[in-house]
Amino acid sequence: MISMPSSQPIPPARPDLPPLAELAPLDSRVRDEGQYEYQRVSEVSWDDVFASHARFSQCLLAEVTVVGGEWSKTTFADVRLEDSRLLGPDLSASHWRDTELVRGIASGVQWHDADVRRVHFDQVKLDAVNFRGAALTDVVFTDCLLREADFGGAKLTRVRFPGCTFEEADFSRAKLADVDLRGARLHFKAGLDALRGATIDGGQLVELAPAIAAHLGLRIG
């Protein structure tokens, strides 16, 4: 059922980063199972990088472009990713903790089966991203565009979308608990039945009425 959230909204995640002067420039090649701590990266392009099982901890990534590549099971903990472009990387089964993505673009990103906890997406354009089967817990999307975002089979717990716009989103077979959709513009391609456990406002209910009627097979005359 669509209801009020059972707990107070959580504040967006903020990574625990040291002062910029204490972050060393990353001057090594990103590689499989690499360990990167207390480092900063800016204005670089990583094309078709194989970095599966790598770990980034307390790092700042600014104006980074990631094109394709294998990043599955990589861990991002206490990381700030700002003004960056993620173009089709495979981030399947990756782990995200206390991290924020600020501005930038994520297009065709494979986030399926990822474990995403205490992450803040702020003013990010997400285009055809795949969160199928992912677990998102205590996540906030703020002022984001989610175009053809696929949350099929995902588990969303205490997730909020203030100021976001959904275009052709798919929530088929998703499981929602304490998900707050208020303040977002909603347009779903599929998965209306998965909104059980979400909160919407009266205006959104009016906007969704035609889609809900069509989903239920109702004829309005």
Rank of each mutant, 00 (worst) to 15 (best):
G88H: 04
L61R: 15
H112K: 04
W96L: 06
S42Q: 13
V44Y: 11
H95W: 06
K73T: 00
G153D: 03
V139S: 03
L186C: 00
F56Y: 03
L101Y: 04
F76I: 08
Q58I: 10
P11F: 00
A134V: 10
L208K: 07
S7P: 01
T142M: 04
K189Q: 15
A169C: 14
P19G: 06
T157R: 15
L136K: 03
E22M: 15
S28C: 06
P19Y: 06
R31V: 12
Y36S: 09
F131N: 01
L192D: 12
V30K: 01
F50N: 12
D16C: 10
R147L: 11
D122Q: 15
K155M: 10
K175N: 12
V159A: 07
S45E: 12
L186M: 09
S52R: 14
A174N: 04
L146M: 09
G152N: 10
A213F: 05
R158A: 13
A13E: 09
G183R: 02
A93R: 12
G108P: 06
K155I: 14
R132D: 08
S6V: 08
G133M: 11
R40K: 13
T65G: 03
D122F: 01
V124W: 01
I212E: 13
L146T: 09
R103F: 10
A209Q: 13
D48H: 15
G108I: 06
L216H: 07
R80H: 12
V179D: 09
H112Q: 14
P15M: 08
K125F: 13
F121E: 00
A194F: 04
A177W: 08
A174F: 05
E63C: 04
L205S: 09
F50S: 09
P162K: 03
V109R: 03
F151W: 13
A198P: 05
R160Q: 12
R31G: 03
F188G: 07
E100A: 05
A51T: 00
A114F: 03
L156F: 09
P12W: 00
S94Y: 05
Q8F: 10
G88E: 14
L23N: 05
H95D: 07
M1Y: 08
V179T: 08
